Computed example of a mutant assay.
Amino acid sequence: MSLPEPMDERLRQAMLRVLLATLPGILALTWFYGWGVILNLLLAGLSALAVEALVLRLRRRPLKPELNDGSALVSATLLALALPAYCPWWLTVTATACALVFGKQLWGGVGNNPFNPAMLGYALVLVAFPQQLNQWPALHGMGLSEGLQQVFGVQPGPDGWAGATALDSLRINKSLTIDELFAANPAFGRWGGRGVEWINLAFLAGGLFLLQQRVFSWHAPVGMLAGLFSISLLCWNGSGSDSNGSPLFHLLTGATMLGAFFIVTEPISGAKAPLARLLFGAGVGLLAYLIRTWGGYPDGVAFAVLLMNLGVPALERFAEARHRPQPL
């Protein structure tokens, strides 16, 4: 009879599976945007380990358990994948430091954070530096040498290296029909954002692997995708110039699949009861659509997740009340 694995080892194995599951999305992002994706990942990963070690030293806590569990690297990886490729190095470092300090260590370390650390770091730099966070590169990006110069501020990127995303273009569109927008704007592909639709499918493949490995349950991802699909279907008004986009467009554009399978499934800041997880995911999908369509930001996943993090206690109480035996 084998003994059960210690909690630290189970956490480390789960984090390793999450990192492995991001590989299809990382490869797709790198294929479409170039070396900037890898530079983001390296900067965020190194910053996360350095900040985690520094804060643990200041708190006089042992380094080995938390540095070895992989949670800091997972948060850094998800944050790096959410940031635009070729964003300034200091932005990636700042976002990572905010995620680890304000999203994790300030609350006592792993297992205590009420907010998703990666999304908190992303949201803080998005509010502070909105211009840099909206500089998404054109497809196929730059070479390694040009990318390094762009990231470290040696020289600016060439003219036209960055442009509006499909979500941005749709939100500000006032005159073109959807068909005209897809035909005329290079940000649009066949079903969603050009290239982004394949990136979303790659993250979907990684998410299905995690479901097969039982790293998390299906409730939160299905809730988010169902919530986003339902509200976009209800608000879809065809292909006119005032259209908000089809359900398929919203499922395959922005950070939808990254959010559904790698963000809303975060076990500490998310809900615990199955019904609460389902409602948590549905709330994220609904809020993400509202922010995308009528808000001032290009995507809405980060703010949607943080807002739903605030509602987790209420969702847990509701789920508990639903399952409490009723008096005769």
Score class of each variant (00 low, 15 high):
residue 157 G to V: 11
residue 185 N to F: 00
residue 36 G to K: 01
residue 277 R to I: 02
residue 288 A to R: 00
residue 119 M to S: 04
residue 44 A to I: 06
residue 133 L to S: 00
residue 38 I to W: 01
residue 235 C to G: 10
residue 109 G to K: 04
residue 37 V to R: 01
residue 26 I to M: 10
residue 214 R to T: 11
residue 118 A to W: 02
residue 177 T to P: 12
residue 108 G to Y: 09
residue 50 A to C: 13
residue 44 A to Y: 03
residue 254 G to D: 03
residue 250 H to K: 07
residue 161 W to R: 15
residue 4 P to K: 11
residue 54 L to V: 13
residue 150 Q to G: 01
residue 239 S to G: 15
residue 26 I to D: 03
residue 104 K to N: 07
residue 169 S to F: 02
residue 312 V to N: 02
residue 242 D to C: 00
residue 158 P to W: 09
residue 209 F to V: 05
residue 202 A to R: 04
residue 57 R to Q: 15
residue 222 V to N: 02
residue 155 Q to V: 12
residue 263 I to A: 06
residue 37 V to D: 04
residue 206 G to H: 00
residue 96 T to K: 06
residue 9 E to Q: 15
residue 156 P to D: 10
residue 38 I to V: 15
residue 9 E to K: 12
residue 97 A to W: 05
residue 53 A to V: 07
residue 278 L to H: 08
residue 72 A to H: 11
residue 9 E to F: 09
residue 253 T to E: 05
residue 159 D to C: 14
residue 204 L to V: 09
residue 265 T to P: 02
residue 270 G to Q: 06
residue 162 A to K: 09
residue 81 L to K: 01
residue 328 L to R: 12
residue 248 L to N: 00
residue 32 F to D: 02
residue 306 L to F: 03
residue 73 L to Y: 01
residue 172 I to G: 11
residue 328 L to Y: 13
residue 10 R to V: 14
residue 247 P to I: 08
residue 84 P to T: 07
residue 254 G to T: 05
residue 288 A to K: 01
residue 136 W to K: 06
residue 174 K to D: 14
residue 228 L to T: 06
residue 173 N to L: 09
residue 266 E to F: 05
residue 170 L to Q: 07
residue 138 A to E: 13
residue 258 L to E: 01
residue 162 A to C: 15
residue 194 R to Q: 10
residue 111 G to I: 08
residue 289 Y to G: 00
residue 230 S to C: 12
residue 39 L to P: 05
residue 8 D to L: 15
residue 58 L to I: 14
residue 160 G to P: 04
residue 314 A to L: 15
residue 325 P to A: 13
residue 107 W to E: 03
residue 118 A to H: 00
residue 24 P to D: 06
residue 322 R to C: 15
residue 286 L to N: 03
residue 73 L to F: 00
residue 32 F to C: 07
residue 98 C to L: 14
residue 179 D to I: 06
residue 270 G to P: 05
residue 292 R to P: 02
residue 279 L to S: 05
residue 112 N to G: 02
residue 56 L to V: 12
residue 151 V to K: 01
residue 170 L to T: 01
residue 322 R to I: 14
residue 61 R to A: 14
residue 34 G to I: 05
residue 33 Y to H: 13
residue 247 P to C: 12
residue 66 E to N: 10
residue 99 A to K: 04
residue 244 N to W: 14
residue 251 L to N: 08
residue 303 F to L: 08
residue 298 P to S: 12
residue 88 P to K: 08
residue 233 L to R: 11
residue 2 S to W: 15
residue 179 D to A: 13
residue 59 R to Y: 11
residue 319 A to P: 03
residue 164 A to H: 11
residue 324 R to L: 14
residue 67 L to G: 08
residue 117 P to G: 06
residue 196 V to T: 13
residue 160 G to I: 09
residue 232 S to T: 08
residue 125 V to G: 03
residue 112 N to H: 15
residue 122 Y to K: 15
residue 148 L to C: 09
residue 69 D to N: 15
residue 186 P to L: 04
residue 198 W to C: 00
residue 179 D to P: 10
residue 281 G to S: 07
residue 114 P to Y: 08
residue 285 G to H: 04
residue 80 A to D: 08
residue 164 A to D: 13
residue 228 L to I: 11
